[in-house]
């Protein structure tokens, strides 16, 4: 399977560029039921996001075709993306793009997925916050940097999974500050959170909606947010950005969607239009607000460029922390 998809790589790249040009072109709806392939298990963030979109697309009457969210979980999303990579030109399957789709090929030394698939849309972004335990002596990101400088490796992060967003962010933090931090991977983000709540480590990275609960209940103390600006919400208004604290790291987690290689540009353009329309609904905006996510509605070639840039960041950091093969 790998050999076959590899030779398709260059053709797919052309196809994806072509899809960008086709944006102004005619659009064509696929016929029959649609599968949203998700590489996480049910309940993971990519799964929740795709189910939300499936719900909005159907309920708002944007897409008439029945949509099934199919979890092909396991093996760092490779069960899911290999399934979609094997369906060149298929019009009834879309792949959910979450960080493992980018990082697993880099870590396993297999051909990039992003270079092969047809980019359709960027769906949502999430800012990340770093928390420490409530009784910790750390009161700012600077305290963390000072501790990690004094005793390299002594500051520990309870993380989601190896090569995951929080691992990448840990790597960026290490590079920006010249420190060494111990990242401890878990089976899932919530398993990492259990380790953090049990007081076993110093740090934990969380999305805003996860952090909100921890901060409000007093089980986590926020130290910094890794976005360009502070969040307006009352809970987070006092949380300084990493940049404000002299650490030049801006990092956003994101989720997107793509089609198989060689997807008809007219179908890709149709999907791009539908996803864009979905992000403009009040239903989506409410959901976005509830989850404290951000919208950044890029489609087709623009989304492709965004994904390519994301892939480069992943590759740089994974190479630096020694995980890239």
């Amino acid at each position: 399977m790998f050999r076959r998809t590899f030779t398709l790589g260059s053709a797919a790249l052309c196809a994806s560029l072509y899809a960008g040009l086709a944006a102004a072109q005619d659009m064509r709806a696929p016929t029959g039921p649609i599968e949203f392939t998700v590489g996480s298990g049910a309940g993971g963030s990519p799964d929740v996001i795709m189910r939300t979109f499936a719900q909005i697309l159907s309920e708002q009457g944007l897409v008439e075709n029945p949509i099934v969210v199919q979890n092909r979980s396991g093996a760092g999303h490779s069960n899911a993306y290999n399934h979609v990579l094997g369906l060149s030109g298929d019009e009834n399957t879309l792949l959910t793009l979450a960080s493992p789709v980018f990082t697993t090929p880099i870590v396993q030394g297999t051909p990039s997925v992003i270079d092969q698939i047809t980019p359709i849309a960027l769906l949502a972004e999430s800012e990340l916050i770093v928390l420490t335990t409530p009784d910790s002596a750390f009161n700012s990101l600077q305290d963390v940097v000072a501790a990690a400088t004094e005793a390299p490796g002594r500051v520990r992060v309870a993380g989601g999974s190896s090569g995951g967003n929080d691992h990448i962010l840990t790597g960026l933090l290490e590079t920006a500050t010249g420190t060494t931090i111990t990242y401890i991977p878990h089976e899932s983000g919530s398993a990492g959170r259990a380790t953090f709540l049990g007081g076993n480590v110093e740090l934990h990275f969380a999305t805003l909606s996860e952090a909100l609960e921890l901060v409000q209940s007093g089980s986590g103390k926020p130290l910094a947010i890794f976005s360009a600006e502070r969040r307006p919400e009352e809970v987070f208004a006092n949380v300084a950005t990493a940049q404000e604290q002299g650490v030049d790291v801006v990092y956003t987690q994101f989720w997107g969607v793509g089609g198989p290689a060689n997807l008809d540009p007219a179908v890709a353009a149709w999907w791009a239009e539908k996803f864009k329309a979905a992000t403009e609904t009040a239903q989506f905006q409410t959901w976005l607000g509830e989850n404290l996510y951000r919208a950044n509605p890029l489609t087709l070639a623009d989304a492709g460029a965004y994904f390519a840039e994301g892939q480069q960041t992943f590759r740089d950091v994974l190479t630096q922390i020694g995980l890239a093969k």
């Binding site: 049910a42 993971g44 929740v48 899932s188 919530s190 909100l212 209940s217 959901w287 989850n291």
Partner: peptide, 16 residues
Amino acid sequence: AILLAALILHGIRPGP
């Protein structure tokens, strides 16, 4: 995990 996902999908934020 799926029960939690159902809560999130129904607009309820699980947590402490």
